[in-house]
């Protein structure tokens, strides 16, 4: 179920503005890869090109190649809608649908493909998805309450359950803990550790400890100034990035000298 992602010579534009330049990296299946770097260096932008969510912004486009298990994500006959069913996404702010119950939130993505799912199957899927997001025990007695009745950390785990329910190959997370308290953050980090068994995970984080705790590989991005494109500075095993990086800027960043 998890897949390899190969990014080759990728440039990302917002209309005329080059936001990310010349990124090449390979992400192995069943690993957690962290994107770190100062604000505005294009971490979110690059992440969104991995499920074509950047196309939601008018004028946004890429040059270069992204392969998922060898299939070109940007081939002319590829439907971005289908890509997003394969590559799930969790956002910075928890965003369960407030007009749906907890149960309906989990099923939201599945209902798109399979409107007439038998009730027993749906119940089963809800339980499995919530369990794999470590949320089942907390919400099993109130599945019909609105998703927005949960705490922030629970809402974020509900969003993870919703993403997992469609059985994607890859999970993208854009600063999933930055709106959460430390306890909820730890719960999500534990969860990422478990999800790694099944999914290829890419996580953007501003938190150095988090990157070193949860990720196997770390990519450090930087910009040389406002208005310049972000570039990939260094990509290596997380242990290497945090102990003996080969580029001075990486060392300065991970040791907290800037950013």
């Amino acid at each position: 179920m998890s897949k390899r992602i190969e990014v080759t010579d990728l440039d990302v534009y917002y209309s005329r503005f080059l936001a990310v330049q010349n990124v090449s990296l390979t992400i192995e299946p069943r690993t957690v890869t962290a994107f770190i770097g100062p604000s505005g260096c294009g971490k979110s932008t690059l992440l969104r090109t991995l499920n074509r969510m950047h196309e939601v912004v008018p004028g946004a486009r890429v040059e270069g190649r992204v392969l998922i298990d060898g299939d070109d994500l940007y081939a002319p006959d590829v439907d971005p809608v289908l890509v997003r069913r394969q590559v799930g996404m969790v956002f910075q702010r928890p965003n369960p649908f407030p007009t749906m119950s907890i149960r309906e939130n989990v099923l939201a993505g599945v209902r798109l493909n399979n409107r007439r799912m038998p009730r027993a199957d749906a119940d089963d899927l809800v339980e499995r998805s919530l369990a794999s997001a470590n949320l089942w025990n907390e919400v099993k007695d109130r599945l019909n309450l609105p998703g927005s009745s949960l705490s922030g950390g629970q809402q974020q785990r509900l969003c993870i359950a919703r993403a997992v329910a469609v059985a994607p190959d890859v999970l993208l997370m854009d600063e999933p803990c930055s709106a959460l308290d430390p306890i909820s953050t730890l719960a999500i980090e534990d969860l990422i550790e478990e999800l790694k068994q099944q999914y290829t995970i890419v996580i953007v984080t501003h938190n150095m400890q988090q990157a070193s705790r949860v990720s196997d590989r770390t990519a450090f991005f930087n910009i040389s100034g406002a208005g310049t494109p972000g570039t990939l500075i260094e990509y290596d095993d997380t242990a290497t990035i945090f102990s003996r990086p080969s580029v001075q800027a990486t060392e300065d960043y991970v040791s907290g000298k800037f950013g």
């Binding site: 969510m53 997003r84 069913r85 965003n95 939201a108 919703r162 469609v166």
Partner: peptide, 8 residues
């Protein structure tokens, strides 16, 4: 965006 990211 949540809906679009689910493949809507």
């Amino acid at each position: 965006e949540a809906a679009l990211a689910l493949g809507a």
